[in-house]
Design a protein around this nucleic acid. Structure first.
Lengths: 168, 168
DNA sequence: AGCTATTGATAAAA
DNA sequence: TTTTATCAATAGCT
């Protein structure tokens, strides 16, 4: 939909790519807003440009985390019902299937236990801070990355110290 | 873009709403695919119709969980840089700010500790299963919901037992 | 960032 | 669903 048809393949010219990204990004966001209103739907969009620029949309009636949680639930349901649709009865497949799930559970437990140990080693605190290149997402200076849900006093102290900022 | 212009407000006729949802959904998904290829971007979309029908898209180079994790990180960065942009220097705000963060950290720790205790009480296993109404998403019968990342042998046994399915 | 010629998406109808 | 008349998005320029 422009002065000429284009084929859908990566735009090699970085400037054109950036301009197209910007225009189409707002196009998609607008479509998402319209779908939300017209059809009373819930939509969550997360996107990153190839330079790491972040954009998102979420319908006003919900939030991104809720949508992701719901996604995980539904994905679980689909896995389950896919198994049902495979036409095998539970009797038949559970011997093998349960062994697989048991293994997965073991794996998950190991991860959880490892994290718990890490946590205990560090006095229950897992925050950290580091300088990152965020591809122009934030101001052209250092960015501080703190793990979500784990704001960390020590991380902030470390950050401040690293940047020669005096804390009370 | 049709035989007539429409205003962006909820479509009251359920049939029209459904048809419009279906068409616009595929429109957005197509746009997302194109943006992915044209601009070498990463896009994740999760959506639910007002009847609970689930659809999603994710760029091939990544997956929905990775995108959500990245979203959480970037959201953290934005909170941080928003504070920076407030024009207050760290020296000035840290006395109050750190107290607030310390409180948040305390809260988070309480939650984590509570979960850990719950886990220990139940022998390290947190899966569960329940019958749900999933709005026509799956077959018109019982659905099994298992908490993501916590597949649970016991939950499956319980489900099977509840439905008179014999397990080996 | 704005401006159009074009292509693309889709509302209404079949 | 499929078709088609229209409206909307956007590619190439400035």
């Amino acid at each position: 939909m422009g002065r000429g048809k284009i084929e859908i393949k990566k735009i090699e010219n970085p400037t054109n790519r950036q301009v197209t990204y910007s225009k189409r990004r707002s196009g998609i966001m607008k479509k998402a807003r319209e779908l939300t209103v017209l059809c009373d739907a819930e939509v969550s969009i997360i996107m990153f440009s190839n330079t790491g620029k972040f954009s998102d949309y979420c319908s006003p009636s919900t939030d991104t985390k809720t949508m992701f949680d719901r996604y995980q639930r539904v994905t679980g349901i689909n896995l389950w019902s896919a198994q049902q649709r495979m036409g095998e009865d539970l009797d038949g497949m559970d011997i093998k299937e349960l062994r697989g799930l048991e293994q997965n559970l073991d794996e998950a437990l190991k991860v959880v236990r490892h994290r718990k140990e890490m946590k205990e080693e560090h006095g229950g605190v897992c925050g950290y801070v580091e300088d990152i290149d965020d591809g122009g997402q934030t101001d052209p200076m250092y960015s501080c990355r703190v793990r979500p849900n784990q704001p960390n006093l020590q991380a902030i102290r470390s950050y401040a110290s690293h940047h020669d900022l005096r804390l009370a």
